[in-house]
């Protein structure tokens, strides 16, 4: 499942434009499928400045832990606190209730450089 309207990274994150210079970020259905049951999500603090590719947080399944990377540079303006109590939302609704953070981008045009759904589909299929 790869929604057409989203942008993607090679690290299996999705990016949704939510405003002029803001985006919502989560991990893809493919990523949650690979991880297995998510039991813990560590998110960054509000106000944190992140560079593109920098570690944004961690997702733990019973068997492993994976980093979440910032898809773009910006400031963390919202975090999905529901994941503290219900980390399994990442599995059950990765593109919806399982979202992770919202960022205010340093450069709003950088979104256009991310992968589109077709390119991400190709990437995930090759793995």
């Amino acid at each position: 499942m790869i929604p057409e309207e989203l942008k993607y990274t090679e690290e299996h994150e999705w990016v949704l434009r939510t405003g002029e210079d803001t985006v919502r970020v989560g991990i893809t259905d493919y990523a949650q499928e690979q991880l297995g049951d998510v039991v813990f999500v560590q998110l960054p603090e509000l106000g944190e400045q992140v560079a593109a590719g920098q570690t944004l947080g961690e997702v733990e399944s019973t068997k492993s832990v994976s980093d979440i990377y910032a898809p773009l540079a910006g400031e963390v303006i919202t975090r999905n606190d529901s994941l503290d109590q219900q980390p399994d939302l990442v599995n059950s609704d990765p593109y919806g209730e399982g979202w992770m953070v919202e960022l205010r981008l340093d450069d709003p045009t950088a979104v256009d450089d991310l992968l589109d759904a077709a390119a991400y589909q190709e990437l995930a299929a090759a793995e």
Binding site: G36, D37, V39, S61, T62, K63, N91
Partner: peptide, 11 residues
């Protein structure tokens, strides 16, 4: 087989 559906459910 690593898991069939959910490893937590299997556990």
């Amino acid at each position: 087989p690593l898991r069939y559906d959910s490893e937590l459910a299997e556990h």
